[in-house]
Design a protein around this nucleic acid. Sequence first.
DNA 1: GCCCGCGTACTCGGATATTTTGTGTCCGAGTAAGAGGGG
DNA 2: CCCCTCTTACTCGGACACAAAATATCCGAGTACGCGGGC
Lengths: 163, 163
Amino acid sequence: MSTLGRVKLSQGVEWGLHCATLLVLAPPGATIGRAILARHYGLPEAYLAKHLQAMARAGVLRATPGPKGGYQLARSADQITVLDVVEAIEGAAKPFLCQEIRQRGTGALPAEACRRPCAVHVIMEEAHQAWQDSLRQTTLADIAAKIPTWIRDRNQTLLTETP
Amino acid sequence: MSTLGRVKLSQGVEWGLHCATLLVLAPPGATIGRAILARHYGLPEAYLAKHLQAMARAGVLRATPGPKGGYQLARSADQITVLDVVEAIEGAAKPFLCQEIRQRGTGALPAEACRRPCAVHVIMEEAHQAWQDSLRQTTLADIAAKIPTWIRDRNQTLLTETP
DNA sequence: GCCCGCGTACTCGGATATTTTGTGTCCGAGTAAGAGGGG
DNA sequence: CCCCTCTTACTCGGACACAAAATATCCGAGTACGCGGGC
């Protein structure tokens, strides 16, 4: 069987979260260019740009053009949840779209019997809520706090050097 | 911008859950053909077949060929969770694939510093677990129990009539 | 009247096209820094 | 020595190809029923 549809997250989510974490460690007010970010993780710069743009559009990051420009967090790290980043990249659309098939076909139910959302819809919605709640519980500050000091220091020097 | 990647579930999930629910209401031992199921919800039969096959392969449904053949539940309705159906159709693959980008690029960490999974990976994993747990809490029997009696009776007659 | 064999019609299953989505890349617009000249 | 101006190089942003996956469909293999013939 060729693995039919799967609930797959874009790889951009991983990229975005790691880059955002790196920005947390940057000095306040400083910006990091996408070229530096891409090289730091060995990512294709042009494609990473797409995800960084998405985060900027969503209000998670702030982009400044020109020399010495780059990206920085749009607000405090403890005010940005993982869900914010994920939805910025993947989009905030509900994963399950109820097509109301109970109202179609030979077994179609009358509209007045469908005032309440169907049970399937409710269950999928609750699961999605649980997923969102889980991602909301962690902020970028929490992630950054888990990073060992020596890595933090090393990144500081890595990101400030100008090749 | 064209809405970048999203966490989208196949519509087959909705189809599969509704059809499975319909099978719960069927008399014990009885089978329902895919043609009946497709017409009942106004779905394209050939495509619905693909999802029904997937559920049969996953051990959720049991298919019997020949005349009077069709699909039935592979086990008791209270032993089939919604997660079973979803994973049967969407596949059980993890949605988030950690590519270990922390070990790549100019900022690559040494392998011995990566004994623990990275924080990003852990967070995404926990969210997925929450999602799975939510879907595991409901069985097909629970869904069927929510269906009003008059709909149950009506489906009984609809599914037994032979056009 | 009963039993056996065969044709048939119905079932599911896998292999095959088409459309949408995600992946990857390129080039252009905008901006602030920084050097150079004038006051 | 300071200030203004212009060039320049660097930044991000959107528009453009390529690949993978989901969607949609068709035709073939297998099986049990049911009819017909034989006993």
